[in-house]
């Protein structure tokens, strides 16, 4: 399969620290590919290298078969970039934001206007076309930034934390639009630390930690590989959950003690819950749920806060 983004041993070093420490990545045409990881994992540095605004320190990077060190502008002509922080022109109108940006790609004015109208329709901002950007809500601004990233009909769209800071309604609308793009065959590359976002959108993803890739695969495959099928969450009334940990020994593949609850990683949640009852441990509450990407993520990158 054709690899639109191809990285081998990709490294980004800044003075005194290594942000990306030798990663291998292949993104294929038409897929939605995710970079997951805690803050400081190297996701944004990787995205900036792919966006051709940050030259790699070492390693191989090919985008659409071209070398970003040499062909930056040529590659950027075929990319759409939705940065982490909106950098819209707050004093221009919504439509002008799209038309002026289109000009940077050498798109004729008439075509730019027509495309702007289509894109505003796509991100459901047609009614706000002539309003200024400043009073728009966070969700609207983000949709406009996405529309702006599409103005050159890019082959790859880079989205750096596309829904961070949005309310649930706004997030779902953005997801739905991105899903539509994927259906149209646009290759999406996104970073996120929302696990539900990754599960919703990504065909394949890598988990980064400390500048390296620590896991790779589809969301389903990662859950199968790094977690169990189900998780039982037990809360005990006692002050310390610790005391119960050893009484639960042998109940699952893995057991995790948190300040307020104990997590049991098991294949069959109901069976494990029944066993807990049988041992008459009487937890205050029992919750059986499916394992999620979040469990994988926390397992791989730890629960300690990084920033």
């Amino acid at each position: 399969m054709e690899s639109l983004i191809h990285a081998r041993g990709l490294v980004k070093r800044f003075e005194g620290f290594t942000a990306v420490d030798g990663i291998d990545v292949d993104v294929r045409r038409g897929e939605a590919f995710g970079f997951l990881g805690p803050n400081g994992a190297g996701k944004s540095s990787t995205m900036r290298m792919i966006g051709c605004v940050s030259p790699p320190t070492d390693g191989v990077l090919r985008i659409l078969g071209l070398d970003p060190r040499r062909d930056g502008p040529k590659i950027r002509a075929k990319l759409g970039v939705c940065p982490q922080l909106d950098n819209l022109d707050i004093e221009l109108s919504v439509r002008e934001n799209l038309t002026t940006y289109a000009r940077f790609f050498g798109i004729p004015r008439r075509v730019a206007r027509q495309r702007a109208d289509e894109l505003l329709e796509f991100v459901q901002l047609t009614e706000r076309a002539d309003s200024k950007v400043e009073p728009l809500s966070g969700g609207m601004k983000r949709r406009l930034t996405i529309a702006r990233a599409l103005v050159n009909e890019p082959e790859i769209v880079l989205l750096d934390e596309p829904t961070t800071g949005l309310d649930p309604q706004a997030r779902h609308l953005v997801w739905e639009r991105l899903f539509r793009l994927k259906q149209q065959g646009v290759t999406l590359v996104l970073t996120t630390h929302y696990m539900d976002e990754a599960e919703q959108l990504c065909d394949r993803l890598v988990v980064m930690d400390g500048g390296r890739i620590v896991a790779e695969g589809s969301p389903r495959a990662l859950i199968e590989q790094y977690s169990t099928r189900e998780v039982v969450e037990l809360r005990f009334a006692a002050e310390s959950q610790e005391a119960y940990a050893e009484k639960l020994a042998g109940l699952g593949e893995r057991l995790e003690v948190l300040p307020d609850r104990i997590l049991l990683y098991v294949a069959d949640g109901d069976k494990a819950a029944a066993e807990v009852q049988r041992r008459s441990l009487a937890p205050a509450s029992v919750l059986v749920r499916r394992s999620s990407l979040e469990d994988v993520f926390l397992h791989l990158t730890g629960r300690t806060l990084v920033d």
């Binding site: 966006g51 605004v53 930056g72 502008p73 040529k74 950027r76 002509a77 990319l79 970039v81 940065p83 922080l85 950098n87 819209l88 022109d89 707050i90 940006y101 940077f104 790609f105």
Partner: peptide, 14 residues
């Protein structure tokens, strides 16, 4: 504050 230059740098401009 406005990050206009960064938006331009993401386009095919030098």
């Amino acid at each position: 504050w406005l990050k206009v230059y960064f938006a331009q740098a993401a386009a095919p401009l030098r």
